[in-house]
Amino acid sequence: MFEAKMLQSSVLKKIIESLKDLFADANFDCSSSGITLQDMDSSHVALCYLKLRSDEEGFEDYRCDRNITLGVNLGLMSKILKCAGNDDVVTLRAEDEPNILTFIFDSKNSERVSKYDIKLMEIDSELLGIPDTDYSCVVKMPSHEFQRICSNLSQLGDSVTIDCHKEGVDFKVAGEQGSGAIKLKQTTSVDKEEDQVTVQLNEPVTQSFALKFLCAFTKATSLSDTVNLSLTQDTPVVVEYPIAQHGYLRFYLAPKIEE
């Protein structure tokens, strides 16, 4: 038996909304330690990795008697989650050898209980080993700022060059019709931690990435006030959205490599 009771259905809604356009079908791997999801986009350029820890406060109840994999079409899951109110408590339930995933939505005042079943899919997805590495540079910034940068620069070109150095981080685009550059300096005088830009630098990095994917990742902006960008030369960038009381959602994007 698997049963996970999440206090905020809005969190699950936001996660699925941010994934469903790039990642059509995905396996939720459930174990006693929590729920993980790893998936590649169809072009094998981007990878997402979701971790929801069972011992965090976001779950009111969590039970997973044996490890199970729930293969789900994320478009369908998005439709089901639209049937939940934002303040509803959502319970996910499945048997040990499941064909069906059940969603139960409880309204805050317990006056309305709705239940939906969806058929599970057999998804043959390739799991990749994500190496645990120290990155040359980790940029922490407000998530809405990163969203704005990606959106602004995508109007002029397809790829952004991210340049991390000791003063801050530069985002540059050069297209056929024009070019643009946004410089972010490290902030020291901002009151709120979530408004700060910080750059932890071991080594400077200059790397180009496809804006199409970065813009898609920023659909997760509402999950978190801040976003962390981890970069090392000639390796995928990690775009991480911490999820309060649950864990995190990370996106990995392969760099553009000079031919």
């Binding site: 590649m40 094998h44 350029v45 981007a46 990878l47 390739e126 799991l127 990749l128 080993g129 994500i130 190496p131 790829s159 180009s208 496809a210 390796t235 995928p236 990995y252 994007l253 392969a254 760099p255 553009k256 490599i257 000079e258 031919e259």
Partner: peptide
């Protein structure tokens, strides 16, 4: 010119 790398070039199959 830049070529788009594949994530599979960096992360090997588990």
């Amino acid at each position: 010119t830049n070529k788009q790398g594949s994530i599979k070039e960096f992360f090997k199959k588990r």
